[in-house]
Amino acid sequence: MKKKLLCGILSVGMVMTLLVGCSSKKDDTGSKEKEYKIGITQFAEHGSLDNCREGFLKGLKEEGIEEGKNLKVEYKNSAADMSLSGQIADDLVNSKVDLICAIATPSAQTAYNAAMKTDIPVVYTAVTDPVAAALAKDDGTSVGNVTGTSDKLPIKEQLEMMHEILPKAKNIGIMYTTSEANSVSAIKEYKKYAKEMDLNIVEAGIAQTSDISLACDGLLTKVDCLTNLTDNTVVSSLPTILDKANKKNIPVFGSEIEQVKIGCLAAEGLEYTDLGIQTGKMAAKILKGEAKASEMKFETITKPGFYGNTEVAKNLGITLPENLTKNAVDMFDKIEASK
């Protein structure tokens, strides 16, 4: 009998936590005026995406919406699991948040799908191609109550920068995950610009983290330098790639600040915190009722910045050209341990 009771209590307890969880939060939004409640759904645990999230909250704060004061944040992470991402999106919609911030493409899509039947706006960030993801129309206008920022790479600028540092390099290696739509479209664009500049892109597609070591060894025999996309799987294994490339004295270029910090030579890229801040400001406008998500075009960071790492340059025996370093957004003189 005791066991049966225990079983009963537990199942009731589980259901109760669900219901209590939502009812107590309802009271909070009702009792105070101008108290905002937002939900953040992030697709994976990942340095750049974390920066996005921190930037997003910073952007809101700059507009006077601060966590702890007049803002409640429910942060969820789906650990790169699609079915979980869907359930999280449902959960946020059910807890009746005022706005959902979705970080990375799959999260943005599940959040938009879950919020479609409600009037909860979705603001996404770190979505490389909102048009391909069906979150925006071809002209950049929104398809529904959804808007945000894109982390599209400044590919042309990156190639020009690489050419300036290594004028003799002809074969540029890129590793990417075949399952990441963002990476596939970036590769296409790389090839287009490379052709114009008479450079050659050597690509290596992988399916999962365990393929990286082999793919990297193969690629390094064929190229003069490597460059990175914002490919989640590849970036997560960047230390392995850097280690292999350094042994062969092959420079590796990054695509954003975090990568340069941990040992890429240089990047013409974007700062995810800045992208987050920009997104946070858009969200603030929507929360305050100054704008509607459905009427806002998605935004990109217009001007990329140069990042360089002088310790890496010294190790490789390369000097970074002065006209690049003098305009750099940030220069690092040592290699940091990766997050």
Binding site: M14, V15, T17, L18, G21, K76, A79, L84, Q87, D91
Partner: peptide, 18 residues
């Protein structure tokens, strides 16, 4: 199973969920 996941999503930090 989905109820277990939902309870974990609802009440615990993202890191602890799994």
């Amino acid at each position: 199973y989905k109820l277990c996941v939902a309870v974990a999503i609802r009440n615990f930090s993202p890191q602890a969920m799994k």
